[in-house]
């Protein structure tokens, strides 16, 4: 499915307006603090958020009003969409379980799940590939980079 997008312009424009407003509010808060800390200073940590916030709001409004040359966008469908959502879900789950389950087990599970969802490999192949990946990543991150990765409640 192909269509010419225009919603992205609205989303980015609105995002700019919202973040710009946040920057302006933050600048006001910082201004008070600066007055207390460095009395008499003409600029401080609030100056740049103030300028940026104003610019963001203006540009955001421009995005909302003016039509941009729009891009032709295809929406992923079928297998690609399933793979994309699947791998995204696996990564999110990996992020949730890593600290408690520990690096070794969670990485093996994530790798197997990714090989299943992205590669559509059969279970034995996915498990074997996942095991190899876990070992290689272990060598890379724990041994070469000496990275302390969370061990979790299994201690691995």
């Amino acid at each position: 499915m192909n269509f010419t997008a225009s919603g992205d312009r609205i989303v980015v424009g609105a995002l700019l307006v919202v973040l710009g407003t946040a920057a302006l509010l933050e600048a006001r808060r910082l201004h008070g603090l600066r007055e207390a800390m460095v009395a008499g200073a003409v600029v401080g940590d609030d100056t740049f958020p103030l300028i940026l916030g104003a610019a963001m709001v203006l540009l955001g409004l421009l995005c909302l009003i003016v039509r941009l040359p729009s891009a032709r966008v295809s929406v992923p469908a079928g297998a690609a969409r399933a793979q994309m959502l699947g791998s995204g879900a696996v990564l999110a789950a990996y992020w949730v379980i890593l600290p408690t389950v520990g690096y070794t087990l969670s990485t093996a599970l994530a790798a197997i799940a990714l090989y299943r969802s992205m590669g559509r490999y059969r279970w034995p192949v996915a498990v074997a590939a996942g095991a190899v990946t876990t070992v290689v990543l272990h060598l890379l991150f724990r041994i070469w980079l000496r990275q302390p990765l969370p061990a979790g409640w299994l201690g691995i």
Binding site: S87, T107, A110, L114, Y115, R120, T133, L149
Partner: peptide, 20 residues
């Protein structure tokens, strides 16, 4: 190398790289 192998490896590397 098929994407089914490449994709997972890249994602895991990126994940652990960001952590490291």
């Amino acid at each position: 190398i098929p994407y089914g192998i490449l994709g997972p490896v890249i994602l895991l590397l990126a994940f652990l790289g960001a952590y490291s």
